[in-house]
Simulated assay, not measured.
Amino acid sequence: MNKVGLGISPSQSWHRDLAALIDHIRMRNFPEVLHETLKHLVSFDTILVATYKHSFKPIVVLSDHPQRMSATLAKYINEVYILDPLFNAIRNGVNGGVYRLREIAPDSFESTEYYRSCYHEFDLVDEIILIVPLENDVVFTVSLGRKSSLGSITRAERNTLNSVFPVISALVHQFWIAQSSEYVHDEQARNSMEYALSTFGSGVLTKREQEITGLILQGHSSKSIAQLLDISAGTVKVHRKNIHARLNTSTQSELFSMFLGHLTSLANG
């Protein structure tokens, strides 16, 4: 098989795909053509193309997740994206490029209740993400999911994506110039999610405890939180103990459930 992903120089297929991308560069179906191009370069089971901006709700541009996963995807987009590693990496200013999810995720992400109850439902063993910063603080992302049958991305496939990323990034920029008006982020959703995170535990937790609670829910260990906030790990552990005592919780699962309840109460209020 003559794939760039096998470490072979760009083939005639790549040139045909590139020509097709250029032909569709200002069309609404450019993401579908990009999907087909990536399938010829690397192996993956699922694709999710989305845009992010500040704390706005992400916009799904393209998804091929199975129908049975639609409820989980909707839960991510509408509720828990604010805890997601990609969302938070973008909000913290990650540079454009090609990343594995585990490279940008907090150190204890896979032990979070969010991972177990939501992300784990996608049944992925690896996720490779192309991050393209655009104008007006919008970030265009392409997430390629791999299940156990494919395993982790190979070095050759990673090198392939790195080599074509500048071209894909340039094409995405041109697509966005033509089509950005079709993808407008919801200002109300941004405000409500920022409010949800800032008010969780309000009146019960201190501001520092609220900050640490948010980091716990995202998947940061005590060591990671200590580094981020420039305090000792021992101090973080004391805060964690106080948080559970004040909220009458004992596990992260209970903390996560309480946060979801907080989101629901705000939405219904």
Rank of each mutant, 00 (worst) to 15 (best):
residue 5 G to S: 09
residue 6 L to S: 13
residue 10 P to W: 10
residue 17 D to P: 01
residue 20 A to M: 06
residue 22 I to L: 11
residue 28 R to P: 07
residue 29 N to M: 11
residue 29 N to I: 04
residue 33 V to I: 15
residue 33 V to Q: 01
residue 33 V to P: 03
residue 38 L to A: 01
residue 40 H to I: 11
residue 42 V to H: 07
residue 49 V to N: 03
residue 51 T to A: 09
residue 58 P to H: 08
residue 66 P to K: 14
residue 67 Q to M: 11
residue 68 R to G: 05
residue 70 S to N: 12
residue 72 T to M: 08
residue 74 A to F: 02
residue 78 N to A: 02
residue 79 E to F: 07
residue 80 V to W: 04
residue 82 I to C: 04
residue 84 D to L: 02
residue 88 N to H: 05
residue 93 G to H: 00
residue 96 G to P: 06
residue 102 R to P: 04
residue 102 R to Q: 10
residue 113 E to K: 14
residue 113 E to M: 11
residue 117 S to R: 12
residue 124 L to A: 12
residue 129 I to H: 03
residue 130 L to C: 05
residue 131 I to H: 04
residue 133 P to Y: 06
residue 135 E to C: 01
residue 141 T to S: 12
residue 146 R to M: 09
residue 149 S to V: 10
residue 154 T to I: 10
residue 156 A to M: 13
residue 157 E to V: 07
residue 162 N to P: 01
residue 164 V to G: 04
residue 169 S to F: 06
residue 171 L to M: 14
residue 176 W to Q: 03
residue 180 S to H: 12
residue 181 S to A: 11
residue 185 H to F: 06
residue 187 E to C: 09
residue 190 R to H: 15
residue 194 E to S: 06
residue 195 Y to H: 10
residue 200 F to H: 03
residue 216 I to R: 00
residue 219 G to T: 03
residue 220 H to M: 12
residue 224 S to P: 06
residue 228 L to D: 02
residue 234 G to V: 10
residue 234 G to C: 14
residue 234 G to T: 14
residue 238 V to H: 10
residue 242 N to R: 15
residue 243 I to E: 04
residue 248 N to W: 13
residue 252 Q to A: 09
residue 262 H to E: 07
residue 264 T to I: 13
residue 265 S to L: 14
residue 266 L to R: 14
